[in-house]
Design a protein around this nucleic acid. Structure first.
Ligand SMILES: [Zn+2]
Length: 379
DNA sequence: CGCATTTGACCAGCGC
DNA sequence: GCGCTGGTCAAATGCG
């Protein structure tokens, strides 16, 4: 619905993260805030290559602490344990600000290639966890049962492919290639050379009744598939702005149906279409890290309370997402905490990864702090 | 009428 | 090499 329903509905209450799975997702240990949080995944390598990083460098403060879990090995998942305060990371992510306090870090400058092992996609997940919420995350394994094959789909196909590459420019080549059959698909597929390079991705989990939270951008759904161990389907969305290839996928956790996992891939090359009034939108800054948004809901602050108003929630989301662009400024607001936090985590993760500190996954949890829902935040 | 969603088919990577 | 599976395309359909 976008248009139609667009994206407007959302109620989020809490975020958490999920585990990843088999990829290289990195999860950091979380930091706790007040309440909600969001998880994010980020691909560092890619992100670094993207635009933003030039001079700034993310600094990190003590993320290390965060990672306590690092050795997890594979499974990870759920436990997020510790948490630390995020304090200084904000800057890091937001932009080139010299970091604040501790910056340690480094950088990101790495040539893109530096990725050790995992190259495909590493993502960082950050979760905000709510103390109460129990999401577990990850993994699935459990068996869950139902596989569902119902859906309309038949289950048979799926796979991934390559995806896009950069925003613009695609390879021009159109190829018609086989069309002979005239079936439907004709996929260009680029040469093999490039293979799949995915864009940075980050995911977060939110507690919401509706999938697809409104993050301020307009999305067009282009697919839906049944998820392997879950009764719930996964939906694929693409940003409708011309030239912007940002994608996002939304799925509901099989463990907790109330939790929605949203994964963003890529960065928007345009400001968000709707300007959230209450939130800050950085103007145009497209460059940032992608847009991470974490939703913080005030409503959730109290441990498990019910959700109060949607309004607020919405605002929070917006707030959150705003960061994405934020290159510019942000200074003023301190309100961004939640979001920032998320970002931070992401950064952290990346940072770590760069350094090789993190290779497995670390789980991280964060909670979002919420700011006030008022319009003051605006920018 | 235009655009978003729906939905089955197709593709490509990966594991066995 | 086969089959599974994630991801995407695109025709058909629905809705504002
Ligand atoms: Zn976009």
């Amino acid at each position: 619905m976008a248009r139609s329903g667009g994206e407007r509905a959302n109620n989020s209450s809490a975020f958490t993260m999920s585990g990843g799975g088999e990829l290289d997702e990195i999860m950091l240990p979380g930091t706790g805030f007040s309440a909600g949080g969001g998880g994010i995944y980020y691909d560092m390598q890619q992100m670094m290559m993207m635009p933003p990083p030039p001079q700034s460098g993310f600094g990190g403060g003590g993320f290390m602490e965060l990672l306590d879990a690092s050795g997890g090995g594979g499974g990870c998942g759920a436990d997020f344990g510790g948490y630390s305060a995020p304090s200084s990371l904000f800057d890091l992510f937001q932009s080139p600000f010299p970091a604040a306090a501790n910056s340690t870090v480094q950088q990101l400058d790495l040539p893109m290639s530096s990725s050790p092992a995992a190259a495909e996609s590493s993502e960082v997940v950050n979760n905000p966890a709510t103390p109460n919420s129990s999401i577990s995350s990850s993994s699935n394994e459990g068996g869950n049962s139902k596989n569902s094959s119902k859906d309309g789909n038949r289950l048979k196909s799926e796979a991934g492919g390559g995806d896009e590459e950069d925003e613009d420019a695609e390879e021009e080549q159109d190829q018609e290639k086989n069309n002979s059959g005239s079936k439907k698909k004709l996929k260009p597929k680029k040469t093999k050379a490039q293979k799949k390079q995915r864009e940075p991705r980050f995911a977060f989990m939110t507690k919401s009744e509706v999938d697809h939270l409104d993050d301020g951008y307009r999305w067009r759904k282009y697919g839906q598939k049944a998820v392997k161990n879950s009764p719930y389907p996964r939906s694929y969305y693409r940003c409708t702005s011309a030239g912007c290839g940002v994608k996002k996928r939304v799925e509901r956790s099989s463990d907790d149906p109330s939790v929605v996992v949203t994964t963003y891939e890529g960065q928007h090359i345009h400001p968000s279409p709707i300007t959230p009034r209450g939130s800050l939108l950085a103007g145009g800054g497209v460059g940032g890290i992608g847009h991470l948004f974490a939703a913080a809901d005030p409503s959730i602050l109290p441990p498990q309370h019910h959700i109060h108003h949607h309004f607020q929630q919405q605002q929070q989301l917006q707030n959150a997402y705003m960061l994405n662009s934020a290159p510019s400024l942000t200074t003023t607001s301190n309100t961004t905490s939640a979001t920032t936090a998320s970002i931070q985590s992401a950064a952290t993760a990346s940072f770590l990864r760069d350094n090789g500190l993190l290779q497995d996954m670390v789980t991280c949890q964060m909670m979002g702090n919420v700011v006030e829902p008022k319009e003051e935040q605006r920018f």
